[in-house]
Design a protein around this nucleic acid. Structure first.
Lengths: 132, 132
DNA sequence: TAATAAATTAGTAACTATTATCAATTTATC
DNA sequence: GATAAATTGATAATAGTTACTAATTTATTA
C-alpha cells in the first residue's frame, strides 16, 4: 500500500550514516545533514530513520543514554558503550551466531535477533582517569 | 555526603521487584506498589529506582519499547524481548563470562559489564500467530 | 522522650526524545 | 504538462523521566 518514493533528504541521511564510524543519535544526524540541507527538519530525520529501519537498510542500536543510536551496518555485531563519555564503539567478535542457537534451546518462543552490548570505559576515558 | 535513610516506600519498591518474575517498568511498579501505598507518587518510584540502581541493589535492563525495565536480580543474565507483546523474559544460559573476556581482547578500554538481549517472538505470541 | 538536622515524600511543573499533524512541495506516472 | 501519491518543513502534541518545594519522616543526640 505504502510505496517508497525517492527523496534527496532520505538519501543524504543514509549516506551520512554510511560514512560515519560512530553510531549517531537522531540529533547528531540532524546536525550532520544540515550542512547539505540547511532547511531539513528534525521530523524528517526521525521519519526517515524509521523508514530506513523498517526496510532493513539501517538498524537501531540501544545505549544507556535514553537516546536511540543508529548504524548503517546491518550485520549483527557487538557494541561497546562507554559509561563515561557515552561513545558507542564497534567490537570485532566473529562467530556469535551460536549465541542465538544456544538461546533457542529449551525456549518455547522463537529467537530472531541478538544484541550484545558491553559497558565499561573506552580507551581514552580509561587513560584519562589513570592520569589524574 | 549523601547518606541513605530507611524509607517504607523504598522497601516496598524493592520488595515488589523481588517478588515479580517480570521485568516491570516504573509505571507498572507504581501501580503495584500503590496497592500498599495508595498515596505514593510516581516521582518517588523513579527516585528510588535510581537510588537502588546506584547502590547496586537492582539493575536497569533495556528493551525496545523506550521504557526502562527493572530487575532485582543483579546477576548478569541474558534477556529475551518479545517484539509483539513486549514481554521481557529471563533466559537461562550459563557461563557467559567468557564473552567479556573475549570482548576485552584487543580492546584498549575496559569492559566491565555485558548485556545480552535476544529479540523475537515469545512462546504464546508465536503460537497465536500460527493458529490464525 | 523532646529537640534538631538531614533525608524523603507527595504533588506538580519542567524537560527531552520522539511522534503526529498539515499545508506546501516534490516525485512518479500517464 | 496534468494528476495522484509521497515527502517535506514547521510546529504542536505525547510520553517517559527529572527537577523543585513545602511538608513529613527518619536518625541522632541529649
Amino acid at each position: 500500500m505504502k510505496t517508497l518514493n525517492y527523496s534527496r533528504q532520505r538519501e543524504a541521511i543514509y549516506n551520512y550514516l554510511m560514512k560515519t564510524k560512530e553510531h549517531p543519535t537522531a540529533e547528531a544526524i540532524f546536525q550532520g545533514v544540515q550542512k547539505e540541507f540547511p532547511k531539513i527538519s528534525l521530523g524528517t530525520i526521525y521519519r526517515n530513520l524509521t523508514l530506513l529501519e523498517e526496510t532493513g537498510q539501517i538498524q537501531k542500536i540501544p545505549s544507556n543514554d535514553s537516546k536511540d543510536h543508529f548504524d548503517a551496518n546491518i550485520m549483527e555485531h557487538p557494541h561497546f558503550v562507554c559509561g563515561q563519555c557515552g561513545a558507542v564503539i564497534d567490537l570485532d567478535m566473529d562467530n556469535l551466531e551460536f549465541l542465538k542457537t544456544l538461546a533457542n534451546q529449551g525456549f518455547d518462543g522463537k529467537v530472531e535477533k541478538s544484541q550484545l552490548v558491553f559497558f565499561g570505559k573506552c580507551g581514552s576515558c580509561n587513560k584519562n582517569n589513570n592520569n589524574s
